[in-house]
Design a protein around this nucleic acid. Structure first.
Lengths: 140, 140
DNA sequence: ATTTCTGCAAAACCTTTGCAAGCCG
DNA sequence: CGGCTTGCAAAGGTTTTGCAGAAAT
């Protein structure tokens, strides 16, 4: 697995200040597993820094995500969106402007047709997000 | 592209009542493109049924999604989630309980390493959701 | 006649923002 | 110091809920 860098080093690389809250936030997250929500992270950090506010957790998660220290589970976690394209397709998601466009399933090539995965997961379908920069955002 | 079934037929298949609002909602959505939000759909429907409420739109979108008439763009559109697994991986998403677990990138097989797609989209990475039923939900 | 659905308004989330005080470099 | 950061409280956006009246089967 990718080695964890010292926090001060990360901050230096990304030009952000080393505050006590950030330090603890980072350490606590290192020790978490799965896909925690900001609230869950907040609860965990609060045990070490009882005075921390949820707003600070949000602000710093943003900062970490923007600077690439952290990754979000999904680029489309905002409001609900409904699929109008009834053909089988996948999505191109722009990491900058978050726009979503469709790409025909066949263009991406075929994923394994397995029905059952180790762990007993029963596969219904694949949903692929091709993440990158849309033509517009490349110009910026 | 998949043929559009008559609305009454769909309702019969799924055992839901045919109301005026539902009928118009369905028709309006047929004519929309892309990935509209409930608000956008509401605005469109309101032109034909000015008295309709946003709550009704939400309730019926849910109903349509549950019964398979409609598909959501993303199964994880709720609150933000942060990725703690620093290895390259994809996600198993349960369509019933919405739980997310990780699956190593290598298990799924390799996606094309193309950098640029038609339309000028610059590929950074792929994020695959394997959608299906987790071991727990299969028992239900 | 019953069950289901609608519209309204209020509530429940989740996230962002403005600001004064405090910390970092 | 000067600028960035924090904590608080308030605001903002999205989605859900309870309920009484209306519509569907």
């Amino acid at each position: 697995m990718t080695a964890a860098k010292p926090f001060r080093e990360l901050c230096a690389e990304h030009g952000i200040a080393v505050t006590h809250q950030r330090q603890i936030l980072y350490e606590v997250m290192q020790g978490m597993h799965g896909h925690p929500s900001p609230e869950e992270i907040y609860a965990e950090v609060k045990r070490q820094v009882p005075s921390i506010s949820l707003a600070t957790v949000y602000k710093n998660i943003h900062l970490f995500v923007e600077s690439g220290v952290l990754r979000e589970v999904s680029l489309h976690h905002g409001s609900q969106r409904v699929e109008m394209n009834r053909d089988e397709h996948h999505h191109l998601v722009c990491s900058k402007c978050k726009s979503i466009s469709d790409i025909d399933e066949k263009v991406l090539g075929v994923l394994p047709k397995r029905r059952k995965l180790a762990g007993g997961f029963l596969v219904e379908r694949y949903a692929v997000d091709v993440i990158g920069l849309c033509a517009n955002c490349q110009q910026g």
